[in-house]
Design a protein around this nucleic acid. Sequence first.
DNA 1: AGTTGAGTTAAACGTTCGTTTAAATATACC
DNA 2: GGTATATTTAAACGAACGTTTAACTCAACT
Lengths: 214, 214
Amino acid sequence: MDTKEEILNAAEVLFARSGYHASSMRAITESAGVNLALVNYHFGSKEALLEAVVALRLRPVNEVRLKRLQEIRNRSEELNIKPDLPEILRAYIEPVFGTGESERGWADFANLIGRAFTEPDETVQKILLRHMKPANQLMLELLRAALPDLSGQEVFWRYQFLIGALGRAIRMNSSPGYERLKKNFETDSETLIEMLVSFASAGMGKTEGRVGRR
Amino acid sequence: MDTKEEILNAAEVLFARSGYHASSMRAITESAGVNLALVNYHFGSKEALLEAVVALRLRPVNEVRLKRLQEIRNRSEELNIKPDLPEILRAYIEPVFGTGESERGWADFANLIGRAFTEPDETVQKILLRHMKPANQLMLELLRAALPDLSGQEVFWRYQFLIGALGRAIRMNSSPGYERLKKNFETDSETLIEMLVSFASAGMGKTEGRVGRR
DNA sequence: AGTTGAGTTAAACGTTCGTTTAAATATACC
DNA sequence: GGTATATTTAAACGAACGTTTAACTCAACT
């Protein structure tokens, strides 16, 4: 019964570090210390294993994001005021850097989430997108409310810029292999979040000299 | 003798659309209408074929970027003035969206470049990074000169945010598969570049309330 | 005309992949 | 304690991968 957990943990680490296709069933089961056939026995297939890993690790993060975004929307509607841009950004960004606990193997966990934002592979992207969709839709809605002077096109693209920057930040921060690049820039998550929020607030909120009209 | 070209064109399309590992030698040669063994005969290996495609398509783009960045640095040093942030950004971003010609199959070409910014696979990343390194190094140097009030750490991370946003923008703009997402936001490249420059200028140039000190 | 060498071809190579099978072992229940 | 049920095991499966081989085509040159 902790066989399933051993497999889930090993798969999380390997998927995060090497990607889905590069992590073979044999590598996963060997790392978990269990027999090769047990993944198919307990999960059905390799893809179902990925789905299980994502559901286990990503769902809590997205639930927190969704709840915080909903709170912002509710408060904004009750008080009849524009939602605050930095507040929206913080609700969207912060949970991705850890839900509070999870000290153990946090880098792998974060790296897995980072893949959710940059993964070009269709098999993986399909699963990850399905889990993030509700939070993403509400996020876009809130951004439109917070930036009423911008066209829908402009909000859409600035939102895409944010996603790109966020994904890059996560992967740079947690991926082994970038160690040399960021050797002199070791940055704790709180600082990185602040920099991201500051960057995105300034970039998204800018209204002068913008392209497109409303 | 145009066998090599047929292979290069087919490989560019497949690598861009499906990624390196997902594009099999058989799919490439079949798409090119040549025999399976000819890739190994003309290029040596699949990885050498990727290297050839990257060299052929990415090198001109990076040469333009590097030259424009060097011009900015030279002028800045001669006149003894800070380089202009939007000008730097434009020099870094614009060539990536096309070097002028290349109407034919531009989406595939851009998509291939987009992979250079987001590709998690190590085999691919290694090759792409080698080609982009000179431009990237000079870019970081110029950013530090343009933002003298910011710490090295802050410039480094804002630069990473830019790369993330740029990579996301390229892939969203040229990748088939995102069609549904951006259905109502068809955007031409010039407009997208302007939005990117505007976004990044505001985000990177912001100095109030920043984290870290100099 | 005959020879050389680059280009091309079909077939096979060895490896790795995810999955399946059938037997063996452990666990739970009466 | 014996039987049913769940789990684990070693082995094999068929498919796909990148690469290699050896025979063949064909244009160029003496």
